[in-house]
């Protein structure tokens, strides 16, 4: 009896509709910061290093990623 009652609970939803899971903001924020930091560092080296700014001496990083920087649409030289 109790089983039937529990199964009947999600009835208000449209037939065939599945509830979309939702993650708590508190759980996501640390991962969001980590992913954003990762993206900033990675994209910095592909798009800007040894162009307008330079952390590493020389031109090797710039030249190695040169064509990807151009074709991804970033200012290169």
């Amino acid at each position: 009896m109790s089983n039937t009652a529990t199964q009947a609970q999600p009835a208000p939803r449209a037939p065939g509709a599945i509830a979309v899971p939702k993650l708590s903001v508190r759980q996501i924020v640390p991962w969001l910061l980590f992913a954003a930091l990762l993206a900033l560092v990675g994209l910095y080296f592909v798009t800007a290093e040894q162009g307008a700014t330079s952390l590493i001496a020389g031109n090797a990083v710039h030249e190695w990623v040169h064509d990807s920087r151009h074709l991804l649409g970033f200012p290169c030289h």
Binding site: F34, A39, S68
Partner: peptide, 25 residues
């Protein structure tokens, strides 16, 4: 060289979009 740039950019971008998608879900 170009492959390296694409792989780095694509992977880190994908990670960020992945977590933002978790937020949007």
């Amino acid at each position: 060289g170009m492959l390296t740039g694409m792989l780095v950019a694509g992977t880190v971008l994908g990670g960020l979009i992945g977590v933002v998608s978790a937020l949007a879900m």
